[in-house]
Each structure stands twice: as C-alpha cells, then as structure tokens.
Design a protein around this nucleic acid. Structure first.
Lengths: 274, 274
DNA sequence: CGTAGACTTGACACTACTCAATTGGAGTGG
DNA sequence: CCACTCCAATTGAGTAGTGTCAAGTCTACG
C-alpha cells in the first residue's frame, strides 16, 4: 500500500463528506481514503461505467457528476435502480460476484476514482472503522432500493415522484450539492419514468401537477422545492431508511476489537459532533 | 469464543448449505458456523422477529420455516420486500444501523438461531472467508430486491408472478426444500399481492391464468411448476442476479491476505466442486 | 353444523399506458 | 442570422391493465 503524502491540505471529497456524516474519521483514515481516490479518470455523459452481464473491473468512487444504476429486460424495458451521486461507490461487490447484474451509465460528465478490489480486504484488516463506514454506505444503498420498491409497489405516481425528489434533496445535501430547496437535476423525464416505473407521458403529467400545486418549480435542469415538509408529506417520506443517524456504540465493540496492524489513535469520541 | 465440541456428526444447516453453494467451507469454518447457530428459539406464525422503527437486537439465522421482510406506509399499505427462507439472515446490519427500517414477520412456525452482533467483527478477523461468504449472502439479498424492483417497475402482473415463482424455486432448491418442480408455498394471496405490488383480486386472476395455461398447479399450499423453462421465459427470468456461480478467484486475493489468528488449512481448492 | 378466513368471480371505476400530434430549445450548416 | 434538425417536453384522445366493491364459495376446525 502506498500512502499519500502527509500534506494537510487534502481536499474534502464527497465520499469523505458522506462517511463523515456517519462517523468522525481520524486523520490517518482520511489519508487512506484520499489514497484510495488517487487514480482519477474523467468520463463523458452516456458512458457505461459497468455493463450488465460483464465481468466486474475495479471498484470506483464517483467524485463528481451523476450516473444511474439500471437493469434491463431482454426486450428493452428498463428500470433505474438508483441514482449514483458524488460520494457513491460502484462495484463494491466485485470481490464477491463474478459478473454484474446491472449497468451503470453516466448522465453527466463525471470524475471517477478507481482502485483494485484487493484493497477492500486490506482496509478491513488495517482500517476496520473505515471499512465499517463503507459497509454502512453499502447497506444504506440497499435500504434505498427497498424504499423505492415500496414506492413502486404501493405509492401512487404522485407520491412516488414527490418521494424521489425529497430523497434526492436529502442525499445531495449531505455532499453539499443542494442549498435551500434547490438543486440541479441532470435527468430527462425518460429517466425519471424509468426510475419510478411510469411512462414518460405520465411522469410529465405528474410533474405538472406538482408544479401547478406550487410544491416545486422547474427551470431547465434546476429544481426548486418550495415546501419540503409538504412535499415529504405528499410522498409519505420518512427518512428513517436513510439511516442518517450517527454510528451506534455497538459498532465500536464489534469492529474495533483486538487491534492489529493499526496504531492510529482511534479513541476519538465518535459521538462528539452528534 | 466458545468452540462447539468437535463432534463429526454436525448436522448440515440451511445456512451451511447455502454458503457451500458459494465456496467450500473447511471443517473449522463449519464448526464455527455451527457454534453461531447454537442458541436456538422457536417462534409461532405471525410473530414479529423485527419491527420497523425498533432498535435492532441480535442477529438471527432462520433454520426452518418462512418469514417475510416488509415495509409499511403510515396509512397501512404494505410492501413485502423479500421472503426470508431457511439459511437467510435477519438483521445483519444491526451493527451499522441504529434502528430497523423494515419489519420481519414469520409466516409459519420457525426455528431461529441468534447471536450477538459483536461476533460479526470477530468473524471478519478470525474467519475472513466465512465473513466473505456472509457478505456474499447479504449482497445477493440486495440483488434480489433490485430484481424485484425491475419486476414492479417494468414487468406485467403475469410476468412478475411467473418470475417470483421461479425465483423461489431456485432459492429453495439450494437448501433442499424443492424437489422436481414442486414446493410448499405457505403464503396467502394477500401476501403474494403485497410482494408483487398487486391487489388480492388481481393476483388471484393472474394465478388462475398461470394455472389455466398449465404452467403451474396449486393444491393447497403445494405448488407444482410443470414447465420451469417456459415459466422462466414468461417471467423473463435470468438467474444472473442470484449470483449462484462459485466464488471468484479474486476473493482469495482480497480476503485471504496476510494471515492472523487463523491457522486452518485454507488451501482447499474452492473451485473443486465447480 | 356454524363460523372464520381465504379464495373466487362479476361488474364497474380509474390509474396509467399508448398513440399521435405539437411545441420549444439547442445546436448546425449555409 | 436564418432555416433545418434533433431531442426533450407537452398535450389530447382513446384504451388496456389493475384496482375497488360486493357477493358468493370453499375449507378447516371447534
């Protein structure tokens, strides 16, 4: 493993921001993370970062831009499983699975870091708290998919749409990409339709209803949520599933057991900022 | 950690069967697993093993019986996220999350083992291959939820239903609970409806169509799939997402790095039975 | 033999889909 | 600077697929 130079002026990356909302990372952990994100590439919009059925390659971290994780049926019908935002990880399970059961495609130009899967095992051994934070991020991803399943199964078109907008707002806030109620939504209505299990026409009409009722405003790709509480209420949004609460004490007991290969001062109180 | 006595006659549990379909476990790993499943309880049907919003308790392993993992909206609408079958684990993320975003309720009488979450960290340190197999099982769970999302978003009622039946058949086969094309489906139509995002009436009509077309037979809770290939074709079922392929070589490199606290002969060829 | 829960079926309503036409911008080439 | 093109967004009209309501029917079981 190569350590990044101990420069103090490490930028805060979206991943660091996200993980920091969960637990307070030490300087050493932060540096290890920065090292993971060392190999950076840029990709244009509409690029496949991963393709359904293909073998997994490296693990990737989105540092900037949007992508979608989606699955397709043989006949072309498509479902967007989730939106991939800065700070999100692609192909975390590449160590466990042979080939991918979904595709990941960029919506905008993106900046992605990549590292070989072997480093995940290394991290579990050397920086268990960091590994736990990454596991939290992965588990949260599953929770989001389950919540979207609830949307498609039991929420109406209007509720689903409202719910998704609030979810994106919350997620973007964590990585400083939403201020007040507005953010950039670099997404066509076709993609929204594929995310919400609706037709393009119907998503269009649903957005119109939300606009007409004054809950949101749309100007090009900029969306403004005028009344988050009311929108959340329309979508029956309960942020429990985002698990934004700080790390439970339990975690320390489970992951920070007998030390090995690891000498960072780790007794910082994780709940200091809670 | 307490080791189970080294009796050779350890029963094969469903979890062991499931994990063995992924990698060949050593005798020591098998014994550790048996020890995890040492504390056993029985619960009657319609018991909540976990409740949405409640704090997580111990980790649990289903050894016998069926349960459902489900989420509810404030107004009572409900979505079944997945079926919990023997060999499945409940509350794996209890170390990472404070409270549960879903409920787990038994459908039949069940036999569950439980162990404190601390042991997961212990396992990562002492039996990394076993931990990896558990991670595989968890990642697979997410893949199933994503596939169901595709169903609810883009498959018709008939396709969804066919898909679910084939999925259950495949999953049950792994733990020896399905022979030829038939198995016990201890599930009311209401629950099927909640799993597939349909109304009870419509699920009933859809099952009728499947029966009338001769693809399946239903006798009480016994379901017989007459033509798996054709049913899979109706449901556009592609088992890629179940990741039933044996462990990739990559895994060894990542998880079986520098040894510590672990001296079991691990050089068994994982792909021996492949 | 009576009751309760699950299953079935018919009739009808409604959500969301399809088809089709139109509008609106952003880019491109003359 | 103005057609022209392309793609996304809109809107209308008609329909298909599902949901709702309501009335049975079946089966298990006390």
């Amino acid at each position: 493993m190569t350590r990044a130079p101990a420069s103090r002026a490490l930028d805060t990356t979206p991943l660091w921001l996200k993980l920091s909302s969960y637990l307070v990372l030490s300087e050493e952990e932060k540096m290890y993370l920065a090292d993971l994100e060392r190999t950076i590439a840029r990709e244009p919009p509409r690029t496949d970062l991963l393709q359904q059925g293909e073998k997994y390659r490296d693990v990737r971290i989105i540092r900037d831009g949007w992508a979608i994780r989606h699955k397709a049926l043989p006949d072309g019908r498509r479902q967007v499983v989730n939106f991939v935002l800065p700070g999100d990880i692609i192909g975390m399970y590449c160590t466990l699975f042979e080939s991918a059961d979904h595709s990941v495609t960029t919506l905008t130009a993106v900046e992605v870091a990549s590292f070989p899967p072997e480093r995940i095992g290394e991290m579990f051994r050397s920086f268990p708290r960091l590994a736990a934070a990454l596991a939290w991020s992965g588990a949260r991803e599953e929770a989001m998919v389950a919540e979207r399943l609830l949307s498609l199964g039991r929420r109406t078109a209007l509720e689903r749409t409202a719910h998704l907008i609030v979810e994106l707002l919350r997620r973007l806030s964590v990585v400083n990409m939403a201020t007040d109620g507005h953010f950039v939504l670099p997404v066509t209505q076709e993609i929204l339709a594929d995310a919400l299990g609706l037709s393009i026409v119907h998503i269009n009409r649903t957005l119109r209803r939300l606009r007409d009722s004054g809950l949101i405003e749309l100007n090009g790709q900029r969306i403004t949520v005028n009344d988050v509480r009311q929108l959340a209420s329309v979508g029956q949004f309960d942020e429990l599933y985002l698990h934004l609460i700080r790390v439970p004490k339990r975690l320390e007991r489970a992951f920070a057991g007998p030390r090995h290969q690891n000498n960072n001062k780790r007794e910082d109180d994780d709940r200091a900022k809670a």
